[in-house]
Write a protein that binds this DNA or RNA. Structure first.
Lengths: 182, 182
DNA sequence: CGCGACATGTAAGCAGTTACATGATTAT
DNA sequence: ATAATCATGTAACTGCTTACATGTCGCG
């Protein structure tokens, strides 16, 4: 019997390691800070928090905003922190190459006429150039991060990887377009 | 109500467009030809083939190997071909960045001591260098593919993309290691 | 005769998305 | 007032993986 991976659990515990957060806050973090490598909808986060509470990895205090709006602010327990650090120190086998619908389409593109092939590639290039532009703009916030022990420093390394990945993806698409444009 | 994507369906139809194949053959194709961008286990393929048969997109003939071993050889129907080409000609919105456990770990690596950080990065580099080496070897089979309308040509473009992706990933890891190695 | 490859299926469960459902607060 | 955002949850479903289950064929 294989153990489950439960990556969402560790993503949540990792975020709670440095800040106490509500489910709503966590969902914002996934959409902002982690969006380049992980995501989770609130419909997945809330049940996971419930489970983690039952398992004693996190606990929560109820805060009231205004007169009656309840907010559950979660914090990590000692057991949760221990569990997280154990996970972080474990080397997992390399992830298999992620699925990619675009590459699947391109693989089958011999069944497409020439215009459709180029259209497919150009649309994809346009989208990825926009993403690259957006990523490059977000690198500026790391300009004066120098402490190689800070969370921000690792954030900047991940961001650098995302920029490099998008640059290469765009270069590849440009090569494909050039070669197919007789 | 959102329509389902059913990418596996189209991956199977695409493969059956050019060759009649059994479920077992399809599973070999996923492990070989498509492994850089799609995968599927036999436990997913067989039920999907059953569904596609019921939907009239494929049909099968039973072949006997040896004395009694039955093999279902599937072929695509006209309706299936039409459906596949319609899908192939449709531009889907860009896929969101795939999840990446390694980047998640690196994001949290400030919680790791220096040796563990470097170990994490070096292990990952070693694995990706091996994958890159393997990919580079498999590019040679495209050396004399020149027909830009052939399936093999698009196979070679996808393969080129995979090599470029791995090269960049390795370059990124090397940069990270250099920066963290005081 | 036994082992690895060939060949086909089902069952249980995890991970994730979309949709359903409700209600409070804040800014316009 | 009303819309956007804050805030929390559940239900139904798709996609995929792991494990269960069975049997044949070819080789040494």
């Amino acid at each position: 019997m294989q153990m489950q991976k439960r990556t969402l659990k560790y993503a949540i515990l990792g975020l709670l390691c440095h800040n106490d957060l509500s489910g709503y806050d966590l969902s914002l973090e996934f959409d902002k800070a982690l969006s380049e490598f992980w995501s989770a909808k609130h419909s997945q986060i809330y049940p996971e928090l419930k489970k983690l509470t039952e398992e004693g990895k996190v606990r929560y205090d109820i805060e009231i905003s205004g007169t009656s709006l309840e907010k559950k602010v979660y914090s990590i327990t000692e057991d949760g922190r221990k569990d997280f650090l154990e996970w972080l120190n474990t080397i997992e086998p390399m992830q298999s190459t992620p699925k990619d619908v675009f590459r699947l389409r391109l693989f089958f593109a011999a069944d497409l006429d020439k215009d459709a092939r180029l259209h497919l590639l150009r649309e994809q290039l346009r989208d990825h150039q926009a993403r690259l532009e957006h990523l490059r703009n977000s690198t500026h916030k790391f300009d004066n991060v120098t402490d190689r022990d800070s969370a921000a420093y690792f954030d900047s390394l991940v961001c650098l990887g995302a920029v490099m990945r998008e640059e290469t993806h765009c270069r590849w698409l440009e090569t494909c377009i050039e070669r197919l444009r007789e």
